[in-house]
Design a protein around this nucleic acid. Structure first.
Lengths: 195, 195, 195, 195
DNA sequence: AATGAATGAGTTTTCATTCAT
DNA sequence: AATGAATGAAAACTCATTCAT
């Protein structure tokens, strides 16, 4: 069996595992379910993955890495609006491309085990810090409202996470561009027109 | 043992269970840990609670109910801003009062079991629907920006959940009033001052 | 259940495990066999012992400790023959008292796991060193033949181990005193009367 | 592939298996380890050997057979001492020639499986019986001390086994002739010079 | 003949729940 | 009511052996 096939088999298991995790959640997903879905024997699973945690981690890590690479620091010397939109566009695009993994990341990834929790936390922290820093830059330039940048960062992150989660869970078919625009409007103007 | 004592014993177990769940997460929390913390025998636990899921559900349900009762539909014939602030104030107050439960609700409550997942989902749905309806009312009155009210509702919900989660997990000691104000500003104005 | 009972239950499992190990050998002995023999549930076993290795180790350790304590350094200022006889008598007595454990120690204890192997080796080494030292003392006094004391020590140890193993495996019913005397004669005179 | 090559391939696997068994012990030695060491594929192993037990048995059997053939019944009508020495010399020579197998035979061979245990036991029994018979002959001629010949036989066997085991495990480099002489002295004279 | 991916039976281990005292 | 020892179903994981290529 060639290298291609080994890699293919790996991906086959990975991909079915992703479905199972998305459908049942990490704890309810049994190795049995995964191998049944993938149509391989119990032992074959362990030929390709250390254990249940390892395959889950790999699924999440891949997406984490892709999202991480996608986020670009906003360059305040160039027009900002489009850069922000572009970041949102790319993140959303990646996350909606593989909805099963997105669901997993947003609902199951916490509480697997302490080490993995820390990894996930620190990914979100990095993102939040990057965002916070950008917001501070913006505040100096007067293009971001005054206020606690860290708070804004987490509010933004939370809004993004929840919306994507709902999109994925409810299988909404909103065009991505529309989602980007609604969020952008939300961050730019808020929505209350009072006092 | 009098009724008072039974109730007290129940609360004693409940309260220690809350700590354990908050510290370890649902799956890593063992009945052993709970009874050890509560200082009762294993068997005693089952005199007061059906099973592990039941005590967890009770913990979450209580807070869910309190939060549910606290949210008041905005009466658009009266000044709106203060009513919105008041809703946020009360929700935040309840959730920060019992941080252990809040952490549990925001990180562990999903993925316990399908029935419970549905219940939680429907709670959030109710809140989101209420919010969505209020936003639609506001849009008609011109005090809420145009756009998909359901999207705004989930963005709002997500922002709130994430911020509270961070406050609880990082043990931030921001005064509640400040949190309310930052969030209010966020929802009213957004934060980007660009194009 | 009182302290007595817990200890009793422990011993009950320990004692049946001993039989199973003696009958089947370490590797062929399954936890299933042990709990079946002991008449307890699978889980009960793990209530009292960490795992299979732990219970095996405890069985061997107990006897190792008893044998270790029994061996007295020979005091060469007093009559030697009786002291040697006495040592042999006590070791043999302990080992024939619990024949199942003796069989285990002499046939299964090696190859369980590297850490345990080392422990066992170092026990035998200690015994061999003690013996070697006594032999050297004896050589200085002229009551032990010249020659490599270490070699004599291991020859002695091996002779003792093999004979006891055969006694136990074949269920010989030689009186202990006779075994002591034959061995003593063997060590004192050898058996060849040639050249 | 010619017959020569098949035989060579067989020996290649056999020889690496021997090393692996000696290093790790029967149970800890995995087929994986053996084929890795031998540089053949897993499947190839099974072309040459029935199963794990079979290759182990073959390794032990070969040495057992060589040792068995080497032992000559002592002819009491000719000078005895040199015949005994010669037996010991040859046994020791065979066993030290292939130290890996000797280690295996002396520490792992028991407890593999009941059938193999019986075979090994019966080999030792044969040797012991041969020895016992020779001792009885010697007793009639007055060149062996009175006493239970069977006991003497097992004491002798045990002494020999233990010493060789130590030589092999500790990689002692005693000249074989010296080992023979020490053992011969041990059997002839014992070592205690008391009472 | 050789390969090495695939298999699945066999074991260990965990832990929520029960139940005799 | 309270206790905590006992239970056993449910999972994870290993590894000798098979078999398609």
């Amino acid at each position: 069996m060639a290298v291609r096939d080994k890699a293919a088999r790996r991906l086959q298991i990975l991909s079915h595992a992703r479905e199972v995790f998305a459908k049942r959640g990490y704890h309810a997903a049994k190795i049995e379910d995964i191998v049944l879905a993938a149509g391989v024997a119990r032992g074959t699973f362990y030929l390709y993955f250390e254990d249940k945690r390892a395959i889950f981690e790999e699924i999440v890590d891949r997406t984490l890495a892709r999202v991480g690479m996608t986020i670009l620091r906003v360059d305040v010397t160039r027009p900002v609006a489009e850069q922000v939109r572009e970041n949102m566009r790319r993140i959303i695009s990646i996350l909606l491309e593989d909805r099963a993994t997105t669901k997993i990341m947003l609902s199951d990834a916490l509480g697997i085990d302490p080490a993995f929790d820390r990894k996930l936390q620190s990914f979100y922290d990095e993102v939040a810090n990057l965002l916070e820093q950008s917001l501070r830059d913006g505040q100096e330039l007067g293009i971001v409202a005054q206020g606690d940048a860290k708070v804004y960062a987490y509010l933004t992150l939370g809004a993004l996470k929840e919306l994507l989660y709902q999109v994925v869970v409810r299988e909404w078919e909103h065009p991505e561009e529309q989602i980007v625009e609604e969020m952008f409007a939300f961050f730019r103007n808020g929505f209350l027109r009072i006092d």
